[in-house]
């Protein structure tokens, strides 16, 4: 689906359904995605190209 060169998007939202919906939408659009429920959680993750 999304290749390794696709832009990486960080989604931070405490609402799980919203994250799920965004994941579905963004991945289908070809983005790579990382999610976090809170801001500190994402600090340990790779640096994203875009943030939401």
């Amino acid at each position: 689906m999304s290749d390794a060169n696709a832009a990486l998007v960080l989604v931070v939202d405490d609402d799980v359904p919203i994250r799920r919906f965004l994941r579905a939408g963004l991945e289908s659009a070809g983005y790579r995605l990382i999610e976090a429920g809170t801001a500190p959680t994402r600090c340990a993750r790779p640096r994203p190209d875009r943030r939401t």
Binding site: P17, R20, F21, A24, E27, S28, A29
Partner: peptide, 14 residues
């Protein structure tokens, strides 16, 4: 059309 079946199902579920 650009979504997989699984994504569509997930959207409907959402």
């Amino acid at each position: 059309h650009s979504m997989t079946e699984e994504t569509r199902a997930e959207m409907a579920d959402t």
